[in-house]
Computed example of a mutant assay.
Amino acid sequence: MTTDPVNWPLIPRGTFFEDHVVGRVFDHHWGRTIHASDNLTFSTQTLAFNPVHFNRAAAKAAGHPDEVINPLLVFAVVFGLSVEDLSELGGPFLGATDVTYLRDVYPDETVYASSTVIEARASETRPDTGIVTWHTVGRDTAGQPVIEFHRTNLVRRRTSSTELLAVPDGYAEDFTVGARFRHARSRTITDLDLNGLTLLVMNSAPGHFSEQEMADTAFGERINFGGLTLSLTVGLATQDTAGQAVRELGLDDIRFPVPVKHGDTVGAATEVLAIDPLDGGDAVVTFRHLGVNQRGEIVCQTTRRVQVRRRAAEQPAAPTASSSSLISTES
Rank of each mutant, 00 (worst) to 15 (best):
F209N: 09
F209K: 04
F209H: 13
F209P: 00
F209D: 02
S210P: 01
S210W: 03
S210C: 11
E211L: 10
E211Q: 15
E211W: 00
E211I: 00
Q212H: 09
Q212T: 09
Q212R: 14
Q212F: 02
E213L: 07
E213W: 08
E213V: 02
E213K: 10
M214S: 13
A215I: 03
A215P: 00
A215E: 13
A215S: 12
D216F: 01
D216A: 13
D216G: 10
D216E: 15
D216R: 13
T217F: 00
A218L: 12
A218H: 11
A218C: 00
F219G: 08
F219Q: 14
F219C: 07
G220I: 01
G220Y: 05
G220N: 10
E221F: 00
E221N: 08
E221Q: 15
E221R: 13
R222K: 11
R222H: 03
R222T: 01
R222Q: 03
R222W: 00
I223W: 06
I223E: 03
I223R: 08
N224G: 12
N224T: 10
N224C: 15
N224I: 04
F225H: 12
F225K: 05
F225W: 07
G226W: 04
G226I: 02
G226H: 07
G226Q: 08
G227T: 04
G227I: 03
G227Q: 11
L228I: 12
L228A: 05
L228N: 12
L228P: 00
T229A: 13
T229W: 02
T229Q: 06
L230G: 04
L230C: 14
L230N: 07
L230I: 04
L230K: 05
L230S: 07
S231A: 15
S231M: 03
S231N: 08
S231Q: 03
L232S: 11
L232Q: 12
L232Y: 05
L232N: 09
L232A: 09
L232D: 06
T233D: 09
T233P: 11
T233E: 11
T233F: 03
T233Q: 10
T233C: 14
V234W: 01
V234M: 09
V234L: 12
V234A: 14
V234Y: 01
V234Q: 07
G235K: 08
G235R: 08
G235T: 08
G235C: 06
L236N: 06
L236F: 11
L236W: 04
A237F: 05
A237T: 05
A237V: 01
A237W: 01
A237K: 06
T238G: 11
Q239H: 12
Q239F: 07
Q239M: 02
Q239A: 14
D240E: 08
D240V: 00
D240I: 00
D240M: 01
T241S: 10
T241R: 06
